[in-house]
Amino acid sequence: MSTPAASTRWTRPPLIGNPWLRWGLYLGVALYLIAAVSTLDVNWLRVLDGLSNGWRVLEGFFAPDFTTRSRDIWQGMEESLTMTVTSTVVGCLISIPIGLGAARNVAPLPVYAVCRSIIAVSRAFQEIIIAILFVAMFGFGPFAGFLTLSFATIGFMAKLLAEDIEDIQEAQAEAIRATGASWWQVVNYGIQPQVMPRLIGLSLYRLDINFRESAVIGIVGAGGIGATLNTAMSRYDYDTAGAILIMIIAVVLVAEYASSHLRKWVQ
């Protein structure tokens, strides 16, 4: 074997070229972290107290009680599922025209601006904030929840649909336009077939999200299983709360599997 020729060492060039700046930044971040942690005022006595409380909660969850409050649980579940399905259907239906209007390659500028701002408003607020508003407007109960989830669905679906429409293979739509088709016919023949699989997939995915959200917004009074869970927790009914959590997990799992299967089948 011949001796290798003199080799040149190679190291990956650093992200920040200037060594002063680089090491300065590292040092600054480290100092900030130390300073930030030192301002945290942890009361260790309360942590000790909390530990025993936490143990009681866990105990409840390990011995879930489905029977004592079964009526409340079922009612909450039913409300949640109703809310989920109705809001997904309504939200998706409304999001189709808005999504069309928010696609730059299909809609004229004024329509585009209006639809994009609807989407922006809907996406600006987290579900809980919208739920608080709707509960204040329409009172406690699942109706406020239904409105919240529908509203949130519109922003989510319309945005993703619009982006999908902007990504279509435009040659297909152009060919349809060249046949003398009207605007609606171009949408129906040139665009809809291209975005349909994703539209269905997204609706199923949103169904998933809406169920999980329905459990959350119940806590601020928008009905459903979240409200039941909240009541159980404030009554220190940890075994009932455990039962509710298990049911939520079960429904989410079932929805997850079902929707992923459906999506595969649609593709």
């Binding site: 297909q172 060919a175 699989p197």
Partner: peptide
Amino acid sequence: ARRLMGMIFQEYALVERL
């Protein structure tokens, strides 16, 4: 007028999913 003019495209431009 357009319907009187049949057009054939380079990459076929068929609607693939139809």
